[in-house]
Design a protein around this nucleic acid. Sequence first.
DNA 1: TATATATCGATATTATAATACTGATATCCC
DNA 2: GGGATATCAGTATTATAATATCGATATATA
Lengths: 217, 217
Amino acid sequence: MIENVRQVVTTQALYRMPYYIQQLRVLQEQRIETVSAPKIAELLNLNEVQVRKDFAAVYSAKGKPKTGFNVAELLDSMEELLGYNNSDEAVIVGAGSLAHAIMTHEGFQDYGLKIVAAFDTDADRIGTDINGIKILAADKISNLCRRMKIHIGIITVPAYRAQVVCDQLVAGGVLAIWNFAPVHLSVPDHILVQNENLAASLAMLSNHLKQALGAEA
Amino acid sequence: MIENVRQVVTTQALYRMPYYIQQLRVLQEQRIETVSAPKIAELLNLNEVQVRKDFAAVYSAKGKPKTGFNVAELLDSMEELLGYNNSDEAVIVGAGSLAHAIMTHEGFQDYGLKIVAAFDTDADRIGTDINGIKILAADKISNLCRRMKIHIGIITVPAYRAQVVCDQLVAGGVLAIWNFAPVHLSVPDHILVQNENLAASLAMLSNHLKQALGAEA
DNA sequence: TATATATCGATATTATAATACTGATATCCC
DNA sequence: GGGATATCAGTATTATAATATCGATATATA
């Protein structure tokens, strides 16, 4: 039996990866070739050991005492891990202003996301296009996803529509869903739902403010 | 010495709150007056004990065996906790398409967020308005925040500008920052930075896909 | 060339969050 | 009215993630 030797990348570590990548790119622009875990930890306000472990999880080569890690190689393996090199095709459902923002956001191509179709139910929107991508009628979701072998669906519809849309995406063979609607979606076990919960973030802000202002009083 | 008896609300619990609220509202619309922890757990695909503990953390009254919790009261205390009732004023910096999406998103008022000013450096944008809110020159950030006693700053500028903007907000007395730029921001200890890390979410999706498609092959 | 030191990887410890378990109790149903 | 049972609250356990510690080693410096 072949054991998978490489350490598993934890959810939390994955969340930190984009920050490492961004920081490593800055260092690379400054022509800095090696960097130590403590240095990165200082820059990103993290714990040194945590950084070293995160690196170990994605970068099979070793760091050198007194020197640290090779910036270019680290960057490569992280970008590889996050799939920045091979692009995943996605569709987006709900062609409102949030969809517009996502579709015109240039960064996402660099991150390996390519939106190939958009859907809406609003007759006024169907047939128009955003950033060169045609907006199609929502009843074509499953069909198109299946035909084009789409694996990612992005949901930016209102809460009450989200589950229906989700079901259509799943029926179309989508394997991962990026959900911007503030609802829990029920899906089969093998499907990943990544919730972009803006309301939850706001909850954090609000709670912090309450504490901060309350303590003051 | 007075002890604070109420259980502290953990970060993770706060994240779940908006989902509870959404679900409770659905139940309320259906004229359902009480609900049990196991029922909510089933609907949101959570653990029953977790739900009960989350409830206990925000709702000082008790649930009843065999019956559960009062939907309306639970909802009230959660909305109170998250500050949905008293609205926090905020400014947004970087008037691009993401800012547009946030400013036109109607839900946020309900969540107690009121955006009162927008800033940009682009001369073409300054003086125009989004959704009735004037776009001002970015060099006025600190001043306006201080004058209007703004406590929340939203950052939607490109990565390389984010730290500068952040410093201006902090200088203006802002206490909490909602950061959509994919960079780590350095701030004094008492300031909360809530990162809306879209790149990290994408990383999750991508990683899941790699696993799912890899296993298949 | 010898010594000091920054950093490494590995292991141990601690903190935080999730889940399982247990006895008590309000409601339901016969 | 008297079980049967769903649910509760509280406590115990387990899982996960973060941090501290320690011996080993590559580089720098005297």
